[in-house]
């Protein structure tokens, strides 16, 4: 219900509050290709100097493409695990008459609110003990497991909206529960799978703490750890270089976000991520 009266003031106030954000994101783009002398904000020349990291390894750093590949493997493997496990477990919890079902649900609900970063120390020690420290496999398994309660919860919610009659009709038509799930129910929850998939991918792509602690090695480094390491190492901060890498890093996020905006809003708004 738009009400035009007095909205000029509101716009001005909101604009003032949002100014730092807008500036940061505008300069994120400008500075990567602009040449500005010290003490001046706006560039007076165009350069690709800052993008050299794409074809030249930075001294002492891993190859950017290898790191990007790691990040992609990390994010997509996490997504695949989360999707596969949540879409089966969510179905079982939503639809199958199992003993202890209520306890499983309560467990999932509690865990999905549980702050997972507090577990990082114990997880670090566990990975050391089972020999998965400094491997992508280890950090993928951990990330996927920590995302699972949320994923199961979301998928259960989507399954809950599929009419029972479809399921009953399938069973009466002689199909096993597995066939019913695979051929009749799963196609009804594709929007959920898509939303959860995009969400998990973004969560994996952006994750910093887990790979930083569990897989910091150059060979298994992901983009967040790579960039953070670069920033932490350098006393004379080369913001233009960092931002170029940052922009390179954020492009997939922006693309996915633009395509799946509404679906993502639902998951982020579901009270799931701090």
């Amino acid at each position: 219900m738009p009400r035009a009266r007095g909205s000029g003031i509101i716009v001005a106030l909101l604009a003032a509050a949002s100014a730092p954000l807008v500036l940061m994101y505008v300069f994120l783009v400008i500075e990567t290709v602009g040449e500005a002398p010290p003490g001046q904000l706006l560039p007076d020349g165009f350069t690709l100097e800052n993008w050299r990291f794409l074809w030249e390894d930075l001294p002492g750093k891993a190859n950017i493409w290898a790191v990007t590949l790691n990040t992609f493997i990390f994010a997509s493997a996490t997504t695949v695990i989360v999707l596969a496990v949540s879409s089966t477990a969510g179905y079982a919890l939503s639809r199958i008459n199992l003993p202890f079902r209520a306890y499983f649900l309560a467990g999932v609900l509690v865990l999905h609110a549980f702050p997972t970063v507090t577990l990082i120390i114990a997880i670090f020690l566990v990975l050391q003990m089972i020999g998965l420290y400094n491997t992508l496999t280890g950090v993928i398994l951990v990330k996927a497991s920590l995302e699972l309660p949320l994923g199961i919860w979301i998928m259960k919610g989507f399954y809950d909206t599929v009419p029972w009659e479809i399921e009953m009709a399938g069973v009466q038509d002689g199909a096993s529960r597995f066939t019913v799930w695979r051929r009749l129910i799963l196609p009804q929850v594709t929007p959920g799978i898509l939303a959860l998939g995009v969400f998990s991918f973004l969560a994996g792509w952006s994750e910093f703490i887990l790979p930083q602690v569990l897989a910091p090695d150059n060979k298994v480094q992901v983009l967040s750890v790579y960039l953070a390491g670069l920033i932490a190492d350098d006393y004379d901060l080369n913001f233009a270089l960092f931002k170029s890498i940052g922009l390179f890093y954020v492009i997939p996020v922006v693309i996915l976000y633009l395509f799946f905006q509404d679906k993502l809003m639902n998951i982020y708004g579901g009270g799931t991520k701090g």
């Binding site: 577990l119 997880i123 096993s176």
Partner: peptide
């Protein structure tokens, strides 16, 4: 068979969550 499917479907989730989530707790 339906219940077996349920158990089967919950197994991986339980395994992941127990090993990397509950045991760290």
């Amino acid at each position: 068979p339906g219940k077996w499917l349920g158990v089967l479907f919950l197994m991986p989730a339980t395994l992941f969550v127990v090993v990397f989530f509950l045991s760290p707790v």
